[in-house]
């Protein structure tokens, strides 16, 4: 059965809607970087990059790449007017010290307590790597997770407990997937939005922990859906 679902860009746009004007935002590597491309024109958002940039702008035009101006994913970026550079220790002060309003992170798993697992799996073949994930997860005022609802082979990523090593405990506020927007609160997972054409039972079947539903669940309509 084909499940109706949002595209990655639509998922990113849904995240972007929740980022208030004037926010300082750090986007994790991978899918979260898409959020930077879909911020509505009426909002002034300042993007932070862990390697020492505030006011990070989009990718440069071809021929204007400067390899000493890159983002956390090591891709070339630009600086917007008013932007600044600083060293790593200051950059992580911003992250740990509660100065970043919102971070959007990818995840392998999120538990119903808001535990985040996004740095290591149980694949012993790969050397471990953590980067800035732990600092960001404990320090940002609001931690949003943007990820697919299940693994490629259909196993749930929203779980009662994470089975992969934790990045940080009890830090995730909200999860955005191709199927739903889900808050993490004292009552566990609470569904705020759901994609059109999916039943609550279908969503629950793809989720490893019990879902409750907000009084009014908004409908997400995929393009062409």
């Amino acid at each position: 059965m084909t499940v109706p679902q949002l595209s990655h860009t639509e998922m990113a746009a849904r995240v972007a809607r929740d980022i208030p004007d004037g926010s300082y935002v750090n986007l994790g590597i991978g899918m979260p970087t898409l959020v930077g491309d879909v911020i509505s024109a009426g909002k002034e958002i300042i993007f932070h990059s862990e390697n020492g940039i505030l006011g990070m702008g989009p990718a440069p035009a071809p021929g204007e790449v400067d390899w000493e101006l890159i983002n956390a994913g090591k891709s070339p970026v630009t600086l917007v007017p008013g932007g600044s550079y600083f060293h790593h220790t200051d950059s992580f002060m911003m992250m740990r010290g509660g100065h970043i309003d919102v971070t959007v992170l990818g995840a392998f798993q999120v538990s119903e307590q808001g535990d985040l697992a996004n740095w290591a799996t149980d694949d012993a073949h790969l050397p471990p790597a953590v980067g800035g994930a732990m600092d960001l997860a404990v320090g940002a005022k609001r931690v949003l997770v943007l990820m697919m609802h299940t693994t490629p082979d259909g196993r749930p990523k929203l779980l009662p407990e994470c089975t992969y090593p934790l990045t940080a405990a009890q830090v995730v506020h909200r999860i955005y997937t191709e199927l739903a927007v889900i808050d993490v609160g004292p009552a566990g997972f609470v569904v705020r939005d759901m994609v059109a054409g999916l039943s609550r039972e279908d969503l629950q079947r793809r989720t490893g922990a019990p879902l409750t539903f907000a009084d009014e669940v908004a409908v997400l309509v995929p393009a062409g859906g």
């Binding site: 790593h88 220790t89 992580f92 740990r96 471990p128 980067g131 800035g132 732990m134 600092d135």
Partner: peptide
Amino acid sequence: ELELVPQGTLSERMR
């Protein structure tokens, strides 16, 4: 040998 350190901790330990 690998000692893995969160990035901010790496920088702050040197600081």
